[in-house]
Design a protein around this nucleic acid. Structure first.
Lengths: 126, 126
DNA sequence: ATACAACTTTGAGTTAACTCAAAGTCAAGA
DNA sequence: TCTTGACTTTGAGTTAACTCAAAGTTGTAT
């Protein structure tokens, strides 16, 4: 007996609707069901959910996760394809990281200016 | 004589439609026009566009940028409000940065596993 | 002067990723 | 047993941020 959808929802802070959606579109594999057809998440199912949560939180597109699961379920012949997919997504995240750093620097600069401004009543630059 | 919308579009890689949209919703101020009503971007206009590009690239919501410009145009009495707005957005970006780092680490781990897997033909873990 | 590309506005359409609604099924407590 | 609340599916609705279309105007090259 694993976890109910409600429990998984609570555990990860993901709405049940979204968990069903993830399963429906295929970013997590079909979850085991009870005799009545109710979802009963195994540890493995839960690991997939956790992975999906992490990847989605970083902004990986649903499409990429669908493709990954598809390859995963095709078996050992897809190692290279999975490697390529993950590498490609990592590249995108690294670029995003650079952009984020740049923007944070810019915000830091502006914030320092405004910190002076609220003290002196005068905004220097910008 | 400043730059035309086409030139600004090219300079920043932002479609003209998007530049007009940015102006329409108010994340950049109204751009100067020629006698014929055609946009003629001044250096200051261009600085706003560059700022918008940077902020949007990092994922700041349009709403926040609209609010910032609104405060900016209200004058010196809004220094504190602008500081608060920027600080809040910085917080969000810092969290996003943490999430990104976590996901990149996870991808690095998986990628290293797949790099072995393509060599040995066997995937250890995951 | 005329053709033609680039510009204008208003308003509708698109995309990704959910999110909700409707209508029905199932399980546990009074 | 009956009700209540969680579950199911299918399919439609929502949101943010563009993106495109239609219909008309302007500026430049011949």
């Amino acid at each position: 007996m694993g976890l109910s959808i409600k429990e998984v929802s609570k555990k990860f802070g993901i709405p049940s609707e979204t968990l069903r959606y993830y399963e429906r579109v295929g970013i997590i594999p079909p979850v085991n069901r009870t005799s009545g057809g109710i979802r009963d998440y195994s540890d493995e199912d839960i690991a997939w959910v956790e992975n999906a949560k992490c990847m989605r939180a970083a902004g990986l597109p649903i499409e990429a996760l669908i493709e990954y699961l598809k390859l995963f379920r095709e078996g050992d012949s897809t190692f290279q394809a999975r490697l390529d997919l993950l590498s490609e997504q990592r590249e995108i995240l690294l670029e995003r990281q650079n952009q984020l750093n740049e923007t944070i620097s810019r915000l830091n600069y502006k914030i320092s200016k405004y910190e002076s401004a609220v003290k002196t009543g005068k905004l220097i630059w910008d």
